[in-house]
């Protein structure tokens, strides 16, 4: 957003502000993230710590969890996903409306972590596309907020489908 237009005229003086539509939509979207927490394991405790008053994700406009995927923008996958759970996660993802983003929270969702066995999906990117990976077992709340800010950057800078 530029306050000074081409030609050196200061538009703010006249009560104007110029921007591009793409940037304005990105700005609006990145500060109104309705999240769907798909919590299956111990990372959920860290998710709760992040969501509560000490770290307060509401500062980033992400303080409003929706427990219906149809009303959510960001799918937070928090905790180990087993092969038996995988079709459920896929269905939840398919039910979300565009535009939508996915955050892999914790090392189990990123790569499977130390569950190198018959039961676990080795990273949720085997079944759904992922925008931000937050590793850690579990990640610290600061780490989560860092991931959230990276997601905001991504939302701001992408081409906005309307």
């Amino acid at each position: 957003m530029g306050a000074v237009a081409e030609g050196g005229v200061n538009l703010e003086k006249f009560g104007f502000m110029t921007t591009k539509l793409n940037d304005a939509i990105g700005w609006a979207r990145k500060f109104s993230i309705f999240q769907y927490p798909f919590v299956t394991a111990c990372c959920g405790m860290e998710y709760m710590a992040t969501a509560c008053a000490h770290y307060d994700v509401d500062r980033f406009g992400a303080g409003f969890p929706r427990f219906s995927p149809r009303q959510a923008d960001v799918l937070f996958v928090v905790g180990t996903i087993s092969q038996k759970m995988a079709p459920v996660l896929k269905k939840i993802y398919d039910q979300m409306c565009e535009p939508k983003w996915v955050v892999a929270f914790g090392v189990c969702t990123c790569t499977g972590g130390f569950y190198d066995n018959y039961a676990t999906v080795m990273g949720i990117d085997h079944i759904i596309p992922v925008d931000v990976y937050i590793p850690g077992c579990p990640p610290r709340p600061e780490n989560v907020l860092d991931g959230l800010m990276k997601l905001q950057d991504k939302i701001q800078n992408q081409k906005q489908e309307v």
């Binding site: 092969q83 995988a86 079709p87 896929k90 018959y118 999906v121 080795m122 085997h126 079944i127 596309p129």
Partner: peptide
């Protein structure tokens, strides 16, 4: 050994 219930993406 892996036996995915739904295939990879």
């Amino acid at each position: 050994k892996r036996q995915p219930l739904i295939g990879p993406m």
